[in-house]
Amino acid sequence: MTPFILRFAEPLAAGDPQGSCENSDLGQGFENPEERTSMSDKSTRFTMVKAETTDDA
């Protein structure tokens, strides 16, 4: 009972910025967002394009 389109679904690597944020390794515990640096490397910033939907509801 899996729709055809999901045969093309690909697992996101750990830390890819999609889905429930609390399941991600990124963005944990930054009380002061101005000090965040965890996503500053270019590779991560490029893979952010995998997460472009506004609302995951």
């Binding site: 389109i5 093309f8 679904a9 690909e10 890819d16 999609q18 472009e52 939907t53």
Partner: peptide, 20 residues
């Protein structure tokens, strides 16, 4: 080609997946 009508994300078998 095939693409989703809205969401490029699915939780399948308990894991996050992208639909390109």
């Amino acid at each position: 080609v095939i693409k989703p009508t809205r969401s490029g994300h699915v939780v399948k078998d308990g894991a996050d997946h992208a639909i390109y």
